[in-house]
C-alpha cells in the first residue's frame, strides 16, 4: 500500500489522477474502520490532512464555501449562525472525539443514506453545490444530483470533493434525528427543515429512509403554498394544525424506507411525520417569535 501525502490541492488532484484507486482519508472515521476490520485493502491512501485549504471556510455574506475537511467540531463552534441546520446536525454526529476528526467531505465521500450532513445540505436551498475537483477542472454539482444510490455519488474516480457551497441561512433551520441514545448513534431516520423567507420557499431533507438522502418535494411545495396563500410569510401568526399535520404526512410519504436492524419501515414513516411536525413547530416559533405550540 502507498501513503500519499499532498500538501496542496494541485498536488492532491494530480495524485488522485495518477492513482484513481487511491482512497482519500480526511478524518478517517469511516475509512479507518474499514481498514481496521479488513473490509478494504486499497492500493493507496491519499491523506488530505496536510492540505491546509481543505480545513478552511470562507463566507462572502451570501454563501459559505466550506472546505471539505473542516471537522464537525468547528462547524458547531464557528458556523452556527451562517449554517444553523448543518451545525445542529454536526452536533449529533458520533462523540466529541469523532466530531474533532469527521468531516462533511468524508460524509459526502461515503454518501451513506444515514450521513447526518446530507439532510441539512438538501434543505439549505437550491443553491447548495458540491465543488468536485479534478485535474480536468471543477464541476459544481447541485447537491440534489450528488447522491446516486446507497453509498454511490456523482464523484468521478479522479475527483475529490474540494468544498461545499451553502447559502447563508436567511431563516430558521432545524434538524431532528432518531436513535437509540443521544450520542454515538447512526440515525434510524432524520429530518431537516429550513424556511427561506427571501424567496418564500421551504427546504427539507430526509436521512436514512430511502436509498439516498432526499428532499420531500411535495411537502416543501405544500407548506410554501399554504404560507403564501394565508399571508403568513408577511404577518406571521399561528400555523393551522391541519397544515402542520398535512406537512408531516407529506414528509413521511416522500420516504421509501426499508426494514433493517435499526428500525422498521413503518416506524421510520411514523417518526418522519413526527420529526417534520416538530421541526416545523420549532422553525415557525423561530420565524414568528411566537411561543411554540405542541406539535406532538
Amino acid at each position: 500500500m502507498e501513503f500519499l501525502r499532498p500538501e496542496t490541492w494541485d498536488e492532491a488532484l494530480a495524485l488522485k489522477a495518477e492513482h484513481p484507486d487511491a482512497v482519500p482519508v480526511a478524518g478517517g472515521t469511516d475509512v479507518m474502520v474499514e481498514l481496521n476490520f479488513d473490509r478494504r485493502r486499497p492500493p493507496a491512501l491519499l491523506d488530505l490532512n496536510r492540505v491546509a485549504e481543505a480545513a478552511r471556510w470562507e463566507s462572502d455574506g451570501a454563501v459559505v464555501r466550506l472546505g471539505a475537511a473542516v471537522p464537525y467540531a468547528r462547524i458547531v463552534s464557528e458556523l452556527g449562525r451562517e449554517l444553523p441546520g448543518l451545525a445542529l446536525a454536526a452536533r449529533t454526529v458520533g462523540s466529541p472525539q469523532i466530531r474533532n476528526r469527521g468531516t462533511v467531505g468524508g460524509n459526502l465521500g461515503s454518501a451513506s443514506p444515514a450521513g447526518d450532513a446530507h439532510p441539512p445540505l438538501l434543505a439549505a436551498g437550491r443553491g447548495v453545490r458540491v465543488e468536485a475537483a479534478s485535474v480536468r477542472g471543477t464541476r459544481m454539482v447541485p447537491v440534489d444530483d450528488f447522491y446516486l444510490g446507497p453509498k454511490r455519488s456523482a464523484l468521478e474516480p479522479d475527483e475529490l470533493v474540494r468544498a461545499v457551497h451553502v447559502p447563508v441561512a436567511g431563516g430558521p433551520q432545524q434538524f431532528s434525528k432518531v436513535g437509540t441514545r443521544n450520542a454515538m448513534v447512526i440515525s434510524v431516520c432524520s429530518f431537516a427543515l429550513a424556511l427561506h423567507p427571501a424567496d418564500r420557499t421551504v427546504g427539507t431533507g430526509i436521512g436514512s429512509a430511502a436509498p439516498t438522502p432526499r428532499r420531500a418535494a411535495e411537502a416543501e411545495a405544500f407548506l410554501a403554498g399554504e404560507l403564501a396563500e394565508r399571508g403568513l410569510w408577511e404577518r406571521g401568526g399561528e400555523l393551522d394544525e391541519a397544515v402542520v399535520r398535512r406537512f408531516g404526512e407529506l414528509a413521511a410519504a416522500a420516504a421509501s424506507p426499508i426494514d433493517d436492524v435499526r428500525g422498521s419501515a413503518d416506524y421510520r414513516r411514523h417518526a418522519l411525520a413526527v420529526m417534520a411536525r416538530r421541526t416545523l413547530g420549532w422553525c415557525w416559533a423561530g420565524y414568528t417569535g411566537l411561543p411554540e405550540r405542541s406539535a406532538a
Partner: peptide
C-alpha cells in the same frame, strides 16, 4: 491538542 480516537487516525497522518 485535540482529543481524538487514535484507532481512527492513520499512522501516516
Amino acid at each position: 491538542g485535540e482529543p481524538v480516537c487514535a484507532c481512527l487516525v492513520a499512522a501516516g497522518q
